[in-house]
Amino acid sequence: MEIEFDWRDAALGTRIRVALWLRDEVGEGGTFKKQTLRAAIQGAEQVDRRMRDLRPAGWEIRTYRDKPSLQADELFLEKVGLPVWEREHRAAGLRQISAKTRRFVFERDGHMCRRCGAAAGEAYPDDPGSRARLTLGHVNPHKSGGGANAEELITECARCNETVKHLTGSQMSREQVWDRIKELPVKHKKDLLAWMAVDARPLNAAERAWGMYRQLPAGVRDGVRRDLEALLES
């Protein structure tokens, strides 16, 4: 007896629900908007990311970058891939990152987002009500089916992980970014240019220690802070 799967079933994983929604509501050759997908799969985490995870399983989803007729917020379902809702295909295309590799990358990157510099649990300066949650992304965010080797991975906060792929979040305009850059002191402009050249912000020893400190439980952090205060006063 064939089992019928429904994208409205919240008990299914987000990746499966996204695949079913694309199959049933969009169909091959159909165009859809990211906002429409998010509105349909409400209450699920990282809907856009789960959609990208379908690509290595043979799902061909085009953006305005490779199909110029699309608007910036539109996507085109060119091909329905493997039926990931079926048990034998549920792991198809998923990149398995080992715990060892995950730990190595976080430690290598100082437990800080290598794109914006936020440490785990740290509030964003432009959004104090939101705190950074660290995850792993790919050095080349637009490469479908990227590997799971440490050299291909980078520590990112969840906000940067989504934004750099141009699939979520409102983007600042070039003019807004340039106005902010022009206001920087000359030294900071030079620092920023150096970071741009390598597409990363090198961490100094204090920043690395900060990232490690943010990994500690709140009570332990209080003790470390008091110890440091006492050390500096002695």
Score class of each variant (00 low, 15 high):
residue 1 M to G: 12
residue 6 D to V: 09
residue 12 L to N: 02
residue 14 T to D: 06
residue 14 T to N: 02
residue 16 I to A: 06
residue 17 R to G: 01
residue 22 L to F: 01
residue 25 E to S: 13
residue 26 V to W: 06
residue 30 G to V: 00
residue 31 T to G: 05
residue 35 Q to V: 10
residue 35 Q to C: 10
residue 38 R to W: 10
residue 39 A to R: 07
residue 41 I to F: 01
residue 43 G to P: 13
residue 49 R to F: 09
residue 49 R to I: 06
residue 50 R to S: 09
residue 51 M to F: 00
residue 54 L to N: 01
residue 59 W to N: 01
residue 63 T to R: 05
residue 64 Y to T: 08
residue 65 R to G: 03
residue 69 S to N: 05
residue 70 L to F: 04
residue 72 A to P: 07
residue 73 D to A: 12
residue 75 L to P: 05
residue 75 L to Q: 15
residue 76 F to I: 05
residue 77 L to F: 05
residue 78 E to R: 07
residue 79 K to H: 09
residue 82 L to V: 03
residue 83 P to E: 00
residue 86 E to V: 04
residue 86 E to G: 08
residue 86 E to K: 14
residue 89 H to D: 10
residue 90 R to I: 07
residue 93 G to S: 00
residue 93 G to Y: 08
residue 95 R to I: 15
residue 96 Q to G: 15
residue 99 A to L: 14
residue 100 K to F: 09
residue 101 T to L: 04
residue 103 R to P: 03
residue 104 F to R: 13
residue 105 V to S: 11
residue 106 F to Y: 13
residue 107 E to H: 05
residue 110 G to R: 03
residue 110 G to L: 10
residue 111 H to G: 02
residue 111 H to N: 05
residue 111 H to F: 11
residue 117 G to T: 01
residue 117 G to D: 07
residue 118 A to G: 06
residue 120 A to Y: 02
residue 124 Y to M: 04
residue 124 Y to S: 02
residue 124 Y to A: 02
residue 128 P to R: 06
residue 128 P to C: 02
residue 129 G to T: 13
residue 129 G to I: 03
residue 134 L to A: 02
residue 136 L to C: 04
residue 139 V to T: 12
residue 140 N to V: 10
residue 142 H to K: 14
residue 145 G to C: 07
residue 147 G to M: 07
residue 151 E to M: 00
residue 153 L to S: 02
residue 154 I to R: 10
residue 155 T to H: 03
residue 158 A to F: 06
residue 161 N to D: 15
residue 161 N to S: 07
residue 162 E to S: 13
residue 164 V to R: 12
residue 164 V to H: 09
residue 166 H to Y: 11
residue 168 T to M: 03
residue 168 T to H: 09
residue 170 S to Q: 12
residue 171 Q to F: 11
residue 172 M to F: 08
residue 173 S to T: 14
residue 173 S to K: 06
residue 175 E to Y: 09
residue 179 D to P: 06
residue 180 R to W: 11
residue 184 L to G: 10
residue 185 P to R: 01
residue 192 L to S: 07
residue 192 L to G: 03
residue 194 A to Y: 09
residue 197 A to D: 08
residue 199 D to E: 15
residue 200 A to T: 13
residue 200 A to G: 14
residue 202 P to Y: 05
residue 203 L to K: 01
residue 206 A to N: 11
residue 208 R to Q: 13
residue 208 R to S: 11
residue 209 A to D: 08
residue 209 A to W: 12
residue 211 G to L: 04
residue 212 M to D: 15
residue 214 R to H: 12
residue 214 R to P: 01
residue 216 L to Y: 10
residue 216 L to P: 10
residue 218 A to E: 15
residue 219 G to Q: 03
residue 225 R to H: 09
residue 228 L to Q: 04
residue 230 A to R: 14
residue 230 A to S: 02
residue 230 A to L: 13
residue 234 S to Q: 12
